[in-house]
Design a protein around this nucleic acid. Structure first.
Lengths: 233, 233
DNA sequence: GAGTGGTCTAGACCACGGG
DNA sequence: CCGTGGTCTAGACCACTCG
């Protein structure tokens, strides 16, 4: 039963994954503890720990001190998303990027935006609306609010040459944030800008970022029809 | 300059994150190597390694042997998505789950599906279409193809009591897969099933999973209008 | 209380890849 | 070549939490 010693943590991980898939360790079942596995595999417990941690990160194992490690039942599929700056995204497709600033003004945000960003209702925020282009055609439309208190430098930026999307990433660090994806019908305005039919189904990304307790920026990016966000499992 | 010794890898990680955000280590710049940082922080190199690995996983550091670790320029935002079984997703919202099987038949898939799943053009696949309900109302519509060669047990399942979504996760292990998200207009049929207007913007998930070289299942899940996929940064 | 995972350490060897 | 990150080891202590 004990095969040749597994040399590295990836081998151990793969063997663990194999046992889970093969039902040698069934869903909901407790697996041997790290120390025992280390003996069986002929490696240090540290190595087993690293392997099991990796499997747990994929959601296939539930680990708890004292309780041990259990094979997950109905594990959620996990995928790691990487959301680059739009310019990079377009260039990665082998297309030429450009962007066009549509609007840049100081304004009081609607109440929903003020509440989400936790700024006073009458606060003056910077609003930027811009179109991102790929090979000269519309790629995505960005509608953004910037908290100029948290990002004072933004007030001096025209966002003409460098998009707000890119400028903020370089100049407005954030500690955490939230992202939501959804589908939305193109409004008349969006249809005109993006160059699609009114009512077309648009893939939309909403992002709100924070620097500690202060909101940095809130943006809605509507992609041209046909856009897909891909990832691997 | 050297503060109190940092005890654990999280402290080291946080200090590294702080220096990057504070521009003490500027984008594109080489940071000190692990051994030097270990001396500075007063901990073992292993601990520094663990911390830097975590930062690199967030995309904020590019690490290469011999070349060292560089602060990333324009780091892509990274988010970890967890996509549970639909029943769990609904129940997590505090709603009551149910599902209704609409169709279950053996059929030859369209050429695009056969090609994507890498099965012969005339192969008989199992097609399942089902509606997922939350509190009795439409939640999502699932249109699925199952490779009965890779998942022989599926032929005996009615998918009546347990949805194919859930049955496959329990009984058809996969090694890897692909997911894509997009937006799509509701067709007449989808509108009728989901109970929305024809042409409504639907959030769509497409997933294709593999067990080694054999495709397992290909599914398109169209969510009722208003659905949002959320995650944190 | 006691078993289990979480982590730290010091030292070592190795693989990669830049110069 | 040789510096850097990647990893393994053996041993140790700790934190959590179940019974």
């Amino acid at each position: 039963m004990t095969g040749p010693a597994l040399r590295d943590w990836r081998s151990v991980r793969d063997e663990v994954l194999r046992r889970i898939r093969a039902r040698e360790w069934a869903p909901g079942e407790l697996i041997p503890n790290e120390a025992d596995l280390a003996v069986e595999f002929g490696c240090a417990r540290t190595t087993v720990n690293r392997a099991l941690r990796a499997v747990a990160e994929r959601g296939l194992l539930d680990r708890r001190r004292k309780a041990g490690s259990r094979v997950a039942v109905l594990p959620a599929a996990t995928a790691k998303l990487a959301i680059p700056v739009i310019r990079k995204e377009v260039e990665a497709l082998g297309r030429t990027y450009a962007h066009r600033l549509m609007e840049r003004c100081e304004a009081a945000p609607p109440e929903t935006v003020a509440r989400a960003m936790r700024v006073p209702a009458g606060a003056g925020l910077l609003r930027v609306r811009a179109l991102h282009l790929a090979d000269g055609g519309p790629y995505a439309f960005e509608d953004r609010w910037i908290n100029t208190i948290a990002v004072p430098g933004a007030a001096d930026q025209s966002f003409d040459r460098v998009s707000s999307n890119e400028w903020l990433l370089e100049n407005a660090p954030y500690t955490h944030g939230e992202i939501a994806f959804s589908a939305s019908k193109a409004s008349a305005g969006e249809a005109g800008l993006i160059g699609c039919a009114r009512g077309a189904a648009l893939f939309v990304l909403d992002r709100l970022t924070w620097d500690g307790a202060a909101s940095v920026t809130k943006v809605r990016i509507a992609f041209a029809p046909g856009h897909r966000l891909r990832t691997v499992l």
